[in-house]
Design a protein around this nucleic acid. Structure first.
Length: 814
DNA sequence: GTGTGGCACATTTTT
DNA sequence: TGTGCCACAC
């Protein structure tokens, strides 16, 4: 290993002089030795293995600051890749705090944003224009759906969803439609059809001047390979490349990094074959000093994106890929208490095939992990809501609490209970703002202005609001455009030549006029500067003059009022964009909107509890964390069982969830869970067994709920902790109200599939009277379902109407 | 071309 | 539970 190699000499600036006080000494304050090393090491390649909570963000920002301070790099020579836009923003801010305005000019962004920037500059090189559109998954699904139908591919079992994910996987492996067709077995009709759809899809994207998410990366790689001169521009520019969350990079992203870290001029000879396919073997490095230095940060235990092509080998084989690489291990955790870490270590230790690594902390054991088992997901949610309130009363801010779940659908029950309990919350991701129909419509209007080649956007808005333009007319326009070799958008300008009725002709002419007016407002004539407010004004104009807003206002559908509000919010977003990006154009705005991620809209100061999936939680931390739905078939998810490496990835996901917590961790599950309106029995997750029993304080263990006649009677509506119980907490670490340790704890500890209460095939019929352990007596109204899923609809005397799963409900027939 | 009602199917995670 | 698609009526 070439330790302590000589400092890079850049732009005539010398590195730090030996013996002198380091110019970046202040940046090292408070760092432990490995952290220091990670900040100060200067060499070609550095791998920072950063366990959860080991201060990696701090290290990364200080490393960037140090590179600038020691003059090893100018800001413009730095390219830092983060996982989310939010992380990028924070990093930029923190670097600026450390070293001031010098931070200007760095590229700190996600892979996707960086590629958009590059593609934007170079688009004309390969048949696109600067104003290309970015298709999100929904857009590309819509396009694929159309093509699948056209090719009648569903006859071969090619659903739109399957086709989309297959294309995405291929692109992540840098296989394009042509090379796929070359290697595919064309005797197989299914293969042939798929290859046809793939090729058409790519053709349509090109025709629409559009890239999908995967293309943003893959096409940038192709661009670099096909145009070595272009690649050299960026190799010359970026002398220090830093990549965060490296364990979640896919092959295309890896290839991109490889391209950028080749020595300038490495590809002097143009490569043969226009496709520019992958060259795998490491190239001889003629002059290593000439290549950019690379720093990657990651933790293979937190790799949770294999399903979208992330390749854990990128990090595990880093040392092989970059010979002479320095490796720094960060194992001291500054985030969580020892109890939380012990649980997390124990869980992740069950993954074989991993380098053993143990996080430790010196902050002490802290509180025990709290466990709770509810009857239903609502019961579970009530526990969470009650506990949130208890914490709040003890002085914990809502914004310091988070609730995690495996699947988005689980948020519904939590939401219902939170609303009822008046707990302020915010759902990250889920049905996202930008996926709402009215927002997509509004954006389609903007796209129609910015990228007239995008026929999808045109088709979307042409009859929204209703203008009396149906499929027949759309096809007429489309045919006309093809005939005249013009775009769909331009065909609108010739409405009189289309041969449609006068009413429709007028409607088309009006839409054309509105789009033209908006174009004038938002698009710069050559050399002209457009005011930053142009996007906001243009959007406002489009929505009003197109009749879109009027149609919503005139509607009597109560939802349309909410849609209007959403559109107002979108206008507000454009204003905000103008404030933050005085030079931002329409095209920039659309790109930003297309690339927002689930975690991006996180607003820390909002004073609300955050609800999100465990995936979204990556990279975040909270004082108090609730991991909910810790059940078999949920975490690990049922579908993962069949996938190679699936269960292990699920374990890593669970590990990510646990390690988000600073002080308090809650694990909860439910004994029954309703999905699709069907109630089914849930079993505790195998991961619970992996946590040493002494770390968990079960308020209500699975055993309590399961076993018949257990000692714990549980009152569904009892409010734990009670309001205004007169408890006073001075300390930050609150001793929370705790029930006496469950007598059943040992029973549960290492024998998870505890005996489920089983009423056998108890027969109930409408009119029967029953007694329920908690609800008391009631009368059966109806029985639905079959076998183990039979459900009794019962009207209780005091508790009201309930639905009970007959097989396991704590009931007896009277 | 538009609106309605019935029915099938779905939910793993996401830039 | 709820969404999306299709068939049918206006």
């Amino acid at each position: 290993m070439t330790d302590a190699s000589s400092p890079l000499i850049v732009g005539g600036d010398r590195g730090p002089q030996p013996g002198a006080v380091r110019p970046d000494e202040d940046l090292l304050a408070g760092l432990n030795p490995p952290q220091r090393e990670a900040v100060t090491y200067r060499g070609q390649a550095l791998l920072i293995v950063a366990g959860a909570g080991s201060g990696k963000t701090s290290v990364l920002t200080r490393r960037v600051a140090s590179l600038l301070r020691t003059k090893d790099a100018w800001p413009s020579q730095i390219l830092a890749i983060t996982f989310t836009n939010k992380a990028a923003g924070e990093m930029r801010e923190r670097v600026a705090q450390l070293i001031g305005d010098r931070a200007q000019g760095m590229w700190i962004s996600t892979f996707h944003s960086a590629c958009v920037r590059i593609l934007r500059r170079e688009a004309e090189q390969f048949g696109f224009t600067k104003s290309f559109t970015i298709y999100d998954s929904g857009d590309s699904r819509a396009l694929i759906k159309r093509l699948v139908k056209e090719h009648e591919a569903d006859a071969f079992g090619l659903t739109p969803a399957a086709t989309q994910s297959r294309i995405s996987k291929l692109k992540n492996e840098l296989t394009d439609a042509e090379s796929y067709a070359r290697d595919a077995n064309m005797n197989d009709p299914a293969e042939r059809v798929f290859a046809g759809v793939f090729a058409d899809y790519q053709r349509e994207l090109q025709r629409a001047n559009a890239f999908d998410f995967d293309d943003l990366i893959a096409q940038t790689v192709y661009l670099f390979r096909a145009f070595p001169k272009v690649a050299d521009v960026y190799r010359r520019r970026f002398r220090h490349i830093l990549v965060d969350e490296y364990q979640d990079t896919n092959h295309a992203q890896y290839a991109l990094i490889r391209e950028l870290t080749k020595p300038v001029g490495a590809d002097a000879e143009p490569i043969s074959g226009g496709g520019g396919m992958m060259i795998f073997e490491p190239e001889p490095e003629p002059d290593a000093g000439d290549a950019a230095s690379l720093t990657v940060v990651g933790d293979s235990d937190q790799s949770i994106y294999a399903f979208r092509g992330a390749d854990i080998r990128n990090i595990t084989e880093f040392e092989r890929d970059f010979p002479g690489a320095k490796v720094v291990l960060l194992e001291q955790n500054y985030r969580s208490t020892q109890n939380i870490l012990s649980a997390a270590n124990a869980v992740i230790g069950n993954n074989f095939d991993r380098k053993d690594k143990k996080l430790w902390t010196d902050v002490g054991a802290g509180e025990k992990i709290v466990g709770f088992t509810g009857y239903s997901q609502h019961d579970e949610a009530q526990f969470v809501a009650d506990e949130v309130e208890t914490l709040r009363k003890a002085g914990v801010d809502y914004s310091q609490m988070a609730v995690f779940y495996r699947t988005n659908s689980q948020s519904r029950a939590l939401e219902e209970i939170f609303i009822r309990s008046a707990v302020p919350y915010k759902i990250m991701g889920g049905t996202k703002f930008y996926e709402r129909a009215e927002i997509k419509d509004a954006l389609a209007y903007l796209i129609a202005v910015s990228n007239p080649a995008d026929e999808m956007a045109m088709r979307r808005i042409i009859n929204r609001p209703r203008r009396g333009i149906g499929d027949v007319t759309i096809e007429t326009i489309s045919r006309y455009a093809e005939q005249e070799q013009i775009t769909f958008r331009d065909a609108l300008a010739n409405s009189s030549a289309l041969g449609v009725g006068p009413k429709i002709q007028k409607a088309i002419a009006h839409l054309d006029a509105v789009l033209a007016e908006a174009s004038e407002l938002m698009l710069p004539a050559s050399g002209e500067l457009v005011p930053p407010t142009a996007v906001a004004e243009g959007l406002h104009l489009l929505l009003n003059k197109s009749g879109y807003n009027d149609a919503l206002r005139a509607s009597r559908d109560p939802q349309d009022e909410a849609r209007l509000e959403n559109l107002d919010e979108l206008v507000a977003v454009t204003r905000e964009f103008a404030r933050n990006n005085p030079e931002g154009t329409l095209v920039d705005f659309l790109a930003e909107v297309a690339l927002v991620s689930d975690a991006d809209d996180l607003d820390d100061a909002s004073g609300t509890v955050s609800l999100m999936t465990m995936h979204t939680a990556k990279g975040l931390e909270y004082d108090s964390v609730f991991v909910t739905g810790v059940e078999e078939d949920l975490i690990p998810h049922r579908i993962s069982a069949g996938e190679p490496g699936g269960p292990q990835e699920e374990r890593r996901l669970f590990y990510v969830g646990l390690t988000r917590a600073r002080k308090r961790l809650y694990l909860s599950l439910a004994m029954t869970r309703a999905q699709f309106g069907e109630i089914s029995v849930a079993m505790p997750s195998r991961f619970l067994q992996e946590i040493p029993a002494e770390l968990v304080d079960w308020r209500q263990s699975p055993g309590d709920v399961n076993s018949r006649g257990g000692t714990q009677s549980r009152a569904l509506n009892a409010r734990r902790g009670g309001p205004g119980g007169g408890k006073r907490y001075g300390d930050d670490l609150v001793p929370l109200a705790r029930r006496e340790p469950s007598a059943n704890m040992n029973k549960f500890a290492n024998r998870i599939p505890a005996k489920v209460r089983d009423n056998g095939d108890m027969q109930l019929a409408p009119g029967d009277r029953i007694r329920h352990e908690d609800f008391g007596e009631g009368r059966v109204d109806a029985v639905t379902g079959e076998g183990a899923k039979r459900v009794a609809h019962v009207r209780f005397e005091t508790a009201g109407a309930k639905k009970l799963l007959i097989k396991i409900a704590p009931i007896e027939k009277l």
